[in-house]
Structures are given as structure tokens and as C-alpha cells.
Design a protein around this nucleic acid. Structure first.
Lengths: 223, 223, 223, 223
DNA sequence: CATGAATGAGTGTTCATTCAT
DNA sequence: GATGAATGAACACTCATTCAT
């Protein structure tokens, strides 16, 4: 399964030949079928074997943690990266997204077992922050996503454009920056104590091509 | 090429049969080869045909915009989603990440032509915000990533787990929330006027398994 | 048809694409089908167009020739080479032998129209030599073949191993040598006036491996 | 490989379908690819497997032979025919000439490994004949060719026009005839002891068409 | 008369899967 | 339990052939 994990991550599902998995594992092609009914089952087994343990470990932390919720968030995200992001499991996450269309049941499973558990984890953290008066009132689902999106992005990036990008992306520095940004805000003079204000109204069709908006081209300005 | 785009996005590169592309386009298998040398060239053509125009349109907005940089950011991200995220180009972005390992030259090309141009766009916006006294001093590269990561996440999500997730994710609401979060911060009492403070120090190895940290098991507390 | 001739000779029947023939001829692929029903008919037309005229010319010479039959033979063979061997028709001959199995009717046709006429030509020459007292009595069919074999060999060679052989073969020198050899014989002291003597009896199984002929290994000597 | 040999010889390289080879061998199409990387490799393997052993056997004879060089020549040629000409290897020789243009490396290999070794064999025989006073001084290369050309012709003939010719060609009788002819000469009164005399001068352009030689049409007569 | 876009049967090749040993 | 030889369905790609223009 370790061999399969590496090859699936490196080449994708379709491009991974069972013969390569077998020889990488030092066994014959037929032996694979003694343990897995077919390629699809092998794939599913690899996914489940490598994703769940990491998540389980992560869930243990939260209850025992003492300190500010900002520090807790930082810890959680950094630990996530160290445990999953830096391990081959991050490759699996990417692979799962890439192949989700061809493996709906797997995507369903992953969604239920991993993502929703993950969401509940963050919901608890956010609730802790609000309860202790550290955080503003906030939409828990959206804020959770705003925190997990950079993590998923990091995993995807590592296994897609990262290797061929010109600027190297330092994951841990990025995580630290994101936490600081989301917590403290980018504005020089944020309004303390308030709920986050609603955004300004969008301009009408600002991105349309000129030919599309010739009639009311001045509608593109904000006011 | 429209047929190829749809099928590539729906099934992935390997699982898309040229015969299906042909019949979806209403032509025969051989006809495809009159216009594209092989499957790979078709794929590359689809990618380039559908990604670049969208980006080009996006770059036009920034110069003419008047208003707060917060509003500009909101506009840009929302426009990005309307123009690319809601179009099949978002599917291509996902596909490209999924297949980047098997098409290194395409990934390289996408990185140079799309990502780096995108980065420069955001760098200009952030510089505008800082210059006008709206934003704190900030690491431009990391903040750019913190803003683009949710966008890439949205595209990936839409074409992977989104369709089978229990909670529906409303992209525009998410974008609005992310902008507000990143700008105003999650803290109830952020420090106005200051540079974002450094994060608290991480605890020593908080996520390690007990077997790994047996020597200093109490290291799991914060300090 | 000139284009087809060149390509057929250069690449063989199967490896010649009609599209290449068309573009070499400066017309479109469809145009070829205005003049030839299909690839096979084109091939047959090329063969007939290029082989028969050369042979017809050759037949004209013999009746008017005055001089020794040895000189006549030399003239005929040399003329054959100049007219056919040095022209693309030699390539056709090679091609016809190569493809005879796949075009039995063409081989049949070639056999009747070319080879048998050729045989009759040589039979007349040999009869002339015997009638004039120049040549010994001889088996006409075999001697004809003994004279035409080197010619066919030359044509085959030119279009097969010739281009990659280390020693260059000078066709005209070879023809001259063959005529001299066949006429005068290789022996230092041939027996004038006599019929060619029968060959010595072959040894029993001279080429068998020793393990096969262990019983009478000395049978390898001549008598 | 036996099945491939038969089919290649019978139909040529291009017209032989791997599926036919497989079914002729009693296996499935995929099985062929367990042993040969592709069609080309199968072809090359068939050629090398079937040509070299035959030649190796042939080279053994010459050293042990006692008797006249004329008899030796007869033995060698007859043995060649029995060992190679009558075996499928003769079909391979024909095939190799037919496909030499499409397999230059194979032609090169055959030329070096087979033809040149063959040439050296005959050079030794001719030198023996001259050294023992049996043969006239002669151009070794050309005489070698004059002896091997009928053999190659026989192989070609057998697998091309032979099956559809009206007159049957008896190979062994032909070989015997050629040896006698080349040794004793066709002339009734050859000149003993002498070097073969140079050929009479060729007439000027005797084969040209009338339109080509209109200026000096009388130059076509010999004197 | 000429075109060239379109066709689709055919073939080389791959690889997940099986099973006798 | 393990093997590896064998399978055959599947697919990318080719090219002779057609036909509307």
C-alpha cells in the first residue's frame, strides 16, 4: 500500500499501472489481487488507510489545549500541516479532488468522514473563541472554510504547481501569515468590538467587456 | 473544442475517450485528428483557448477603478468568480492542477502565463491599498496567496466535493466573507494602526503521537 | 504517376500513403481518385506504364544487329541496364518481386508480359550463337536464366543492400565481367569444342554437421 | 516466432497482422507483447534467429574439403541451397531485400553479418582455385558476385514469380548449370591459358530511341 | 475538373484481470 | 500464499475512400 500510495500520488489514478505498484512493492502482479479485489478497491484502501489516522490524531488536541484561541488556531493549522500536509496524505487529498468525479462514492465518503469532522473541529474552536470574548460573532461555516481553504490550497499547490513555480512557497510561513491576517485584519484602522461590517455594494457588471456595456458604460464606476 | 472541454472537465484527461469527444461534437473519430495531432495536443489547445481570454479580461478592470481598495478587492474577486469561476474555465483550472504532474510543460506554461500575471495584479492592488493608507504594511506575496487561495479553493471545490457535499457552499457569499475577514480581522479588539503582531510561539511538538513525545509529554501545554 | 512511381519504389506499396502521392504530384488527395479507382489500380498502372515501354524498345535491337553474338549479348545486357536498370523501372522490378505475393494477378501479368518475352529474346540470341557456330550446344532455358539472374540481381541490389553496402558495386563493370565469364569460362584450360561436361557427383551430405554424419565422416572427400 | 516467420514471408511485413501471428501461434494478441516489445522487434528477432545459424553451418565446410575447386564450388553452392535456399531462411532473405528501405539498421546488420562473411568465403575459394592453377586470374569481387547473384536470384524467384511462372525452375539443375557455364564458358572455342579477353567495344547508344539519336542514327550499327 | 473535409474500418499497443501451477 | 504467463477488451491513431461543393 505504501508503494501504491506513492505511485498514485505521483502519477494519478489512471496513469498508475498495477504492475508498477507490484514491482515497487517487490511482489508480482497477481499478488496484488490476493489483497485487493481490483484497482479501484486498492485505491480506496490506500485513501482510507492514509487519511483517517491523521485526522484522528488531530482531533485529540483541542480538548486539552490551554491558552488563547488565536494560539490554538495557529497550533491546529500548523499541526495539520506537519501531520498531513508534509506527509503523503496531502498527495492523497489532491488526488481525491482530482478523481472525485470518477469515484463519487469515495468523494462522498471523504466528505462525510473527513471534511465534516474537520468542520466540526473548527466550529468548536470558533465557538471557544467567541465564548471567551476573543472573537467577534461570525458565520461559523464560512469562517471555517476561510481557514481550511488555505490549507487545502497548500496541499494542492504542493502537488501541482509548486514544483514548477518560480517563487517558492514556504507553507509554515504562509499559515502563520494567514492566521495573523484573518485574526487581525489587513486594515490599518479596523473597528474594534463591532461585527464585521457588510461589504460595499458591487458595481454593476464591472468586468463586462466594453462591447457588452456600451449603453451604460458609466455604470461601471462606483458612484 | 467545446465538447472536449466539457468532457475533459467532467471525466479528467485519461478517462476521456477521443471517440466520445468526437461524437459529442457531432463528428467522427477521424475528424478530430484533422485538427489536433493527438489527444495531448487537443488537451493543450483546450486549456489555452479557454484560460487566457478570461484572464485578459480581468486585467482590464483595475486601472479604471475608483473607490476604496477594500471595494476594489471585493470587485476583483467577485468579478474573477463571475468570469472564470462560474465558467468552464474553472473546471480547466482544476483539471490542470490534477494533471500537472503528467503535463509538466503545460503546468509550467500555466504558471508563467496565468499565475504570475495574477500575482502581479494583486500586488498592484495591495500596493494601492498601502499607498493610500488603507492597509497595513504587509508581505505582498503571502497576502496575495491568502487572497487567491480561497478563489482556487472555490474552483477546486466546485468541481470536486462540492456536488456531493451536504452543506452547499455559496461562492459569492464566501468571497464576501473572506474579504471582510481578511480586511477587518476576526478579533473583537484588533490593534489599530499597528503592524500585524507576530504569532505566539508554537508549543513543542503538540501533535506528535505519544510514542514520539514520550520524553516530554507535558510539552503539549503551551508554556 | 511519376510521383507514385518514386514513392512506391522508395517506401514500398504498403508504406506509401496516397496523400503523399497526391501532394508530391501537387494535387489533392481526392484528385487521385479521379484517375485511379483505388490504390491497387494506381499501383498496377504505374507498373504497366513504366515497365512495358522499356522492354519494347529492347526487342527492337536484336534483328538489326550485326557482329559476334558475344558482342550482341554484351550490347543487350548493357542496354538493358542503361534503359531499365538505371531508370526507376528497376525499382519497380524490385517492388514487384517484393509484393508479388500480395498481387498475384500483377505477378502473373508481369511474368507473361515481361519475363517470358524476355526469355524468348534471349532464346533467339542463344540460337543465333549456336547457329553461327560460336556457342556450344546448351540448355537454352537455364542459360537464359544464368544471364538474366545477374541482371535481376543488379536491380534488386541497387534498391536494397546497395545503398548500405561497404563495397560499391559498379553495374556496368559487373555486366561486362559476367559476359566474359560466362562466355570464356573461369577455367585456365577449358576443353574447346566439347559440350560442357557434367559436374562431378556431389559428396554425400557434405554440409551436414559432424554429429549428423558421424558414421561416414570421410564421405566429405570427393572420391 | 515460427508463426511470425511464416506469415512475414508469406505476406510481407506490413500486411502481417500481429493478431494473425498470435492466432497462428495459438496464443492471444497480448501474449505476443510479453515477448516482443513491438512488431518491429518481432520482425528483427525473426530475422536474426533464422538467418545466422544457417550461415554459420555453411562456413564450416570449406576447410576440410579435398578435391578440385570446381567440385568445391559446386558443393558449396549446392549446400547453400539445401541449407538455406530450401529452408524458410530464403524467404527471409527475400523479405529483407524487400523491406531493407524501411529497416535500414536491419539491412546494415545483414550486410555486415551475412553478405560480407559470404563474400570472404567465396574469395577464399577463388584464391584456392587460382593458387592451385585451376582458375585464371580473375577479379575476385566481381566473380564472387557472379556466383552469388544466381543464388540470391533463386531465393527471390522462389518467393516471388516462381509460384506463378509457367516454366518451373529446378534450382539444383540451375546451380549445376551455372557452375558449369561459369567454369567452362559458353564459347565453343575458348582460349586456354589466357586471361579472359576484354569485351568488344560497345556500339554508340544502340538502345536509344530514334528520337534521341536522330543526329547520328547510323552510329547505332556496329561498324 | 478539382478540392479537402469527413469518414470509419482496421491495427498496433496497453493493461486490468484471471488462473493453473 | 505467491507467481507470472496468458488474456482480451479497450483505446489511440492511421489512412484509403467518399462526396458535397
Amino acid at each position: 500500500m505504501a508503494a501504491a500510495l506513492n505511485l498514485f500520488v505521483a502519477r494519478g489514478y489512471a496513469a498508475t499501472r498495477l504492475e508498477d505498484v507490484a514491482s515497487a512493492a517487490g511482489v508480482s502482479k497477481g499478488t496484488v489481487y490476493l489483497y485487493f479485489a481490483n484497482k479501484e478497491e486498492l485505491f480506496k484502501a490506500v485513501v482510507q488507510e492514509n487519511l483517517l489516522p491523521a485526522l484522528a490524531e488531530g482531533e485529540a488536541l483541542i480538548d486539552t489545549f490551554e491558552g488563547s484561541t488565536e494560539a490554538l488556531l495557529h497550533e491546529i493549522l500548523m499541526g495539520w500541516w506537519e501531520l498531513i500536509g508534509e506527509s503523503p496524505a496531502s498527495g492523497l487529498t489532491k488526488l481525491l479532488m482530482a478523481e472525485s468525479g470518477n469515484f463519487p462514492d469515495l468523494a462522498q465518503y471523504y466528505n462525510e468522514e473527513v471534511i465534516e469532522r474537520c468542520d466540526r473541529l473548527f466550529a468548536r474552536i470558533l465557538a471557544r473563541g467567541v465564548a471567551q470574548g476573543e472573537f467577534r460573532e461570525t458565520d461559523v461555516d464560512l469562517t471555517t472554510l476561510a481557514l481550511t481553504a488555505p490549507m487545502l490550497f497548500l496541499m494542492m499547490w504542493k502537488h501541482s504547481f509548486g514544483p514548477c513555480a518560480s517563487k517558492v512557497l514556504e507553507p509554515k510561513a504562509f499559515i502563520t501569515h494567514v492566521v495573523a491576517l484573518v485574526l487581525h485584519g489587513l486594515l490599518r484602522n479596523p473597528v474594534p468590538g463591532a461585527v464585521i461590517p457588510p461589504p460595499p455594494p458591487l458595481t454593476a457588471q464591472p468586468w463586462r467587456t466594453p462591447s457588452d456595456v456600451n449603453g451604460d458604460a458609466n455604470g461601471g464606476t462606483k458612484s
